[in-house]
């Protein structure tokens, strides 16, 4: 019986390791993206406020408030995803942010706005909402992979 268990575990080992590696890579990708995205926007919140305005969703004042708050939230949540103590909370914040960004991008796309996503401030400027939307959906899948750890 013991032998069977050992053999079974040995057979599963490569797959388990592969899954573990996958989760590590997904976590690193989310951390890197969110910290970088937050940093580039924190560098020039004035420019970010203009990017928010282009979505034509919120009034200027609210966009200005978001432009000074959101970058720090992204950086903090991204960094805390590395710490066991805060990873669930950080993952929840990241998931919610991705949902909000996805809805905003989809809304802009639906209204035919030809705008820069504003996702990385002025670091990467590119007009168009399709690629950022697809990227966000991929990132949401990543968060789903990490949430599965807590099942």
């Amino acid at each position: 019986m013991e032998e069977r268990r050992v053999i079974s575990a040995w057979r599963k080992a490569p797959w388990t390791n592969f899954r573990k590696l996958g989760r590590v890579l997904v976590r690193i990708a989310l951390v890197a993206l969110f910290v970088f995205a937050g940093a580039t926007k924190a560098y020039d919140p004035g420019a970010f406020a203009i990017e928010i305005q282009r979505y034509q969703i919120v009034p200027w004042m609210m966009g200005a408030l978001v432009s000074v708050y959101l970058p720090w939230l992204e950086m903090l949540a991204g960094a805390l995803l590395l710490l066991k103590r805060f990873e669930r909370g950080a993952l929840l914040v990241i998931t919610l942010l991705l949902l909000v960004f996805t809805v905003a991008l989809a809304s802009a796309m639906f209204r035919g706005l030809s705008i820069d996503c504003g996702c990385f401030g002025k670091a990467f400027s590119a007009t168009g909402t399709t690629f950022p939307l697809v990227r966000n959906l991929v990132l949401l899948v990543f968060t789903g992979i990490l949430w599965m750890e807590y099942r």
Binding site: V68, W72, L73, L76, F86, R88, G89, L91, L92, V93
Partner: peptide, 16 residues
């Protein structure tokens, strides 16, 4: 997760 998320949301207000 909710408690931690709330704390993150609050702490981010400081640098903001």
């Amino acid at each position: 997760a909710l408690r931690q998320a709330s704390l993150i949301l609050l702490v981010a207000l400081i640098p903001a």
